[in-house]
Design a binder for these strands. Structure first.
Lengths: 337, 337
DNA sequence: CTGGTTTAGTAAAGCGGTTTCATAACCTGA
DNA sequence: TCAGGTTATGAAACCGCTTTACTAAACCAG
């Protein structure tokens, strides 16, 4: 591999000159510039990024920490981040934490050690303060999707409350009153916000929630399946279910399928997130769509603001949309109160 | 950030000693070791990875080039690679090419610029030789999933031919004879192999393929939708469709849904790949499962072999499985020849 | 007591860039 | 003609770590 030295030698100038020329810090006479260009071409020289980084302290790389890149939601965000970063000359290190506290911290540390310029952080486990601590120590981190309470960093969330209220109202508008709620793990900011949205819409409509109609736990489909089975065994089972994530809806579908319950005739179902597979289910899933592409792009832009010394807003909220497909219908007559 | 210099100063030794101690190149008297340890702890010192890399030429990082990590198939492989790499102290740099020739080469080049020790490469566009060239020049690349003809690198593929024959025989065993085939873009190795598997199984059963029953094109669902519509418009439409990827099956489902055709009663459908969403579709999709987890892990292991000077096999084939769900049934009587 | 072998450690030269500080050569206008 | 300002370029320090080559001191057998 040719170095800047080789180029300098071949062009008959000093490495300094080559470096400055390449970094546009200097205007060279045409003749010199040409000699350097020729040498670069002849030697197929390309700067050693590592050396550049070490020397400048700038890496033009950022880290993206996600719970699990295998999940479509995070994969799509990652993809958008990468694209946006690429557009600005940055590369992205992606790291999955598998929702494991230790891995999360380790991932973070590793990325910090690798001297990336900044970090885009997504977590989905409640923090005990350690994470908030690490984040607050630096000012090159943006928190996305889920809050890390107490961390001083720009945050980027979607309209969880409004979105969930929208979903709930959609069911109410179809005539449902016995509406059950599948939440995620308690202690998470977004879980709380979404629940509030649900409660808000129910209260607006003057509906009181029967006991057992709200279930919290993990985001695992298996858990949602069990929870749904429980819902179906109630004396007065719901006529509609709000799932606060696609994965939860997946679990619900599994349970409904087990019991031979048809969506939307016997049960309406609406989800939050709207990953790609929702459109493929039969019937296609009505859902609140998170603007994943936008989350990724905006997240990177916020980080870039930080890196380039601009002051990004402390909190950014992105709007969500109701995507009407076919998993929501009117309740059966006999089920109406 | 504390440097090795600071540590040395505080411990009253030279940087050399600290470096060697940290890298286990020297056995130090307990007293000295303790002083160094104390200094490290006090200063919260952590080696600058960039400097280490520059100095040693080793980065303990690998690159993973995929067409699009947003796609579940690649996301799952990426996830497995990351996990396996992590286990061996390597970090993974993921890069999506979006199936774009230029981005593919750029990605490769960027990674090659000394930033990573090796590369795991997945492509899904036919190569014109440029890729093969770049790969052959180095001996730290493993090619996965799809071939890059002419490149001298270890390859890791699944049993495309056998798998597709398996899928086809499964339909034949159910009584189908009018079986159509949705292939991917021609010119790809795996596309060719899978087609051969299909042909093989059909020939075994003595079935001759009506014209128009094999369609090639892109992997895009939209394309498959159109192709399926075309199939349905044939004078003698098929009673079953083999899709050589999940995405193609997705497109087929969209078309069938448009026409009110019910799977598997009116049409059987079987796919290759078996991404997670296949189980969620109604009816759940019968498919040939690629061992994604294994592909990722084995891929990394092959690369590690290469990096550590062992000689990995030139070609590794991983087995595929038939996952029976509910998208395959017997053809209707009237449709039988 | 001598010369060889450990032991414990260091100075300095990289790795491949960037950047600060200089300098030499060449105007330019008074 | 010369002070003063450009313009074109370079030497050397530095980023933080590793590694080679070397030394000073202690040890040890003969």
């Amino acid at each position: 591999m040719a170095t800047i030295h080789d180029v300098a030698l071949q062009a008959g100038v000093s490495p300094t000159t080559v470096s400055r020329y390449l970094n546009r810090r200097i205007e060279l006479p045409a003749a010199t510039a040409e000699r350097i260009d020729a040498a670069i071409a002849a030697l197929d020289y390309r700067p050693n990024v590592l050396a550049q980084r070490l020397s400048t302290g700038k890496s033009f790389a950022i880290g993206l920490v996600a719970p699990e890149i295998r999940e479509p939601f995070f994969a799509e965000i990652a993809s958008a981040v990468e694209d946006e970063a690429d557009r600005h000359g940055y590369t992205v290190f992606i790291s999955s934490t598998r929702s494991d506290r230790a891995r999360e911290l380790a991932s973070l540390q590793r990325l910090v050690d690798r001297q990336v310029d900044g970090l885009l952080l997504m977590t989905n486990i409640p923090d005990d303060g350690a994470l908030a601590d690490m984040i607050s120590r630096r000012r090159n981190v943006v928190v996305m999707d889920e809050d890390v309470p107490g961390a001083s960093a720009p945050r980027l969330f979607v309209e969880n409350r409004e979105g969930m209220a929208l979903a709930t109202r959609h069911l109410i508008d179809h005539g449902h009153r016995r509406i059950a709620y599948l939440g995620g793990p308690e202690g998470l900011f977004s879980v709380t916000e979404r629940r509030e949205g649900f409660r808000l819409a129910m209260a607006e409509a003057g509906i009181t929630l029967p006991p057992g109609y709200m279930v919290f736990g993990s985001f695992a489909p298996a858990h949602a399946r069990l929870a749904t089975l429980g819902l179906l065994d109630l004396a007065e089972p719901p006529t509609a279910i709000v799932a606060s994530s696609d994965y939860l809806a997946m679990g619900a579908i599994l349970a409904l399928r087990d019991r031979g319950i048809v969506v939307p005739e016997d049960m309406s179902l609406i989800a939050f997130d709207d990953a790609a597979f929702g459109a493929l289910i039969t019937p296609p899933l009505t859902a609140i769509r998170q603007p994943v592409e936008l989350i990724g792009r905006r997240g990177f832009q916020l980080l870039l603001d930080l890196l380039e010394g601009r002051e990004p807003p402390a909190l950014t909220r992105l709007p969500v949309d109701l995507i009407r497909r076919q998993s929501v219908g009117a309740p059966r007559r006999k089920d109406l109160k």
